Amino acid sequence: MVKKKTKKNPDEMSFLDHLEDLRWHLLRATLAILVGGGVAFAMKDFIFNDIIFGPKSAKFWTYEMLCNISKFFKLEDSFCFTELPFRIQSRTVSGQFSAHIWTSITAGFIISFPYVMYQFWAFVAPGLKSSERNNARWFIFITSFLFFIGVLFGYYVITPLSINFLGSYSVSEEVFNDFDLSSYIGLVRASVLASGLIFELPVIMYFLTKIGLVTPEFLKKNRKYALVFILIISALITPPDIASQVIVAIPVLILYEISIFISKIVIRKQRKKEKQRQT
């Protein structure tokens, strides 16, 4: 008769035991990504025609919205067009197959993100207090919510702004834009994932405050430096025009202010607990 394997006490686990535990969590997270990637691989037409190449179409939701806004305010119709002046082609033998594989894996990571966060929390939770472990559901929900909001922002704002600017940019009428498939998908992937990770800023600040590396006073004092850093990040992930950088910088600045508020709450709770211990 095989004995049922019991969960070891974290205080009694050796370094190798922790590594073994980490290995199983990483394997489960990887398996979830592969399963999600397999689903995306099977949905090739929807993933590529509707999602990946969606921002290439003049009928894309963002372009139509910006076109209506520009007409309403009687501005230049820079987002009112019938076709973007570029083509996408694959110039390597395995280009389309490789794009299919890596796009499916990226989609699998996005789909399985909540489960990946759950595995991360399941690894660190045994070392936390019972009151902190009870916040697992909120941690998974908040991190997933912020990530998905960031992904949508990257897809519906950063990606179309970048594609519209770079796809219509020309140094001469003699040059026609023929973008390689991997370059185009790389732009979409980088915009979406970078935005998703940037939107995790409040969660990151929460943990940095918990371990004492960040305080509300520090965040307020360095707000001007944070603004410069945010503008640099916005310039890196958007086209080199002021309007696009401002559009991206605004939500990140809002997230920074939210981070200050969260940091205040964490510090307030910590001070309250210290007072309770002293009395």
Results as ranks from 00 to 15, higher is better:
K56W: 04
R223T: 09
R133K: 15
I204W: 06
S170Q: 08
K275Q: 07
N177W: 02
L152N: 12
F145Q: 10
L66Q: 09
H25V: 14
V157A: 04
N134Q: 14
L208D: 12
G37Y: 03
P126R: 06
K56Q: 15
K4S: 05
F72Y: 09
Y63P: 04
C67K: 08
M65I: 15
K269H: 08
T6C: 00
L208S: 09
G37E: 08
G54Y: 08
L253D: 13
W138M: 06
V252E: 01
F148C: 02
Q119E: 14
F120R: 07
R189T: 15
P160A: 08
S70P: 01
S144T: 13
A125P: 02
K221A: 04
K4D: 12
I258R: 01
A125R: 08
H100L: 15
D241G: 01
V252L: 12
F113L: 14
F199V: 10
F86C: 09
I258W: 01
A99F: 03
T143H: 03
K273P: 00
G196P: 06
Q119F: 02
F73W: 11
D77Q: 15
I111G: 03
H100Q: 15
A42E: 12
A32G: 09
S195M: 00
I149L: 11
F109P: 09
I158N: 12
I233G: 00
Q278P: 00
R277Q: 08
A107F: 15
P240H: 04
I88C: 05
M1D: 04
S182V: 11
L26P: 03
V214W: 01
F81H: 13
V157E: 07
K269P: 06
F153P: 00
L201R: 00
F207D: 06
I258T: 11
S244G: 02
F179S: 02
N135W: 09
T159P: 05
E173Q: 07
Y115F: 15
Y225D: 04
F15W: 09
E20I: 05
R91H: 13
V39N: 05
F147C: 10
A122K: 13
F199T: 07
F139H: 03
S170C: 00
I211S: 06
S170I: 02
I111T: 12
S244W: 02
Q278G: 00
R277W: 00
S14Q: 04
F165K: 02
S90A: 15
T159Y: 06
F148E: 10
A249P: 02
W61I: 14
I267P: 01
S70A: 11
V192S: 05
L22H: 09
S94F: 13
F207S: 10
Y155H: 11
P85Q: 12
T82E: 14
K129N: 12
Y115H: 11
G54K: 05
I211Q: 01
P10N: 07
Q245H: 01
L193Q: 07
S263A: 09
S98E: 15
I142G: 01
I185T: 14
L231W: 05
A122W: 09
F165R: 04
I250L: 11
I247R: 02
C67M: 05
L26F: 12
S259M: 04
Q89S: 15
F60W: 12
I247H: 02
I111Q: 08
I142C: 05
V116E: 07
T62Y: 14
F60V: 08
S112W: 06
F41L: 10
Y184Q: 07
F261G: 01
A107T: 13
T92E: 15
V124F: 10
V214D: 03
L19T: 13
K275N: 12
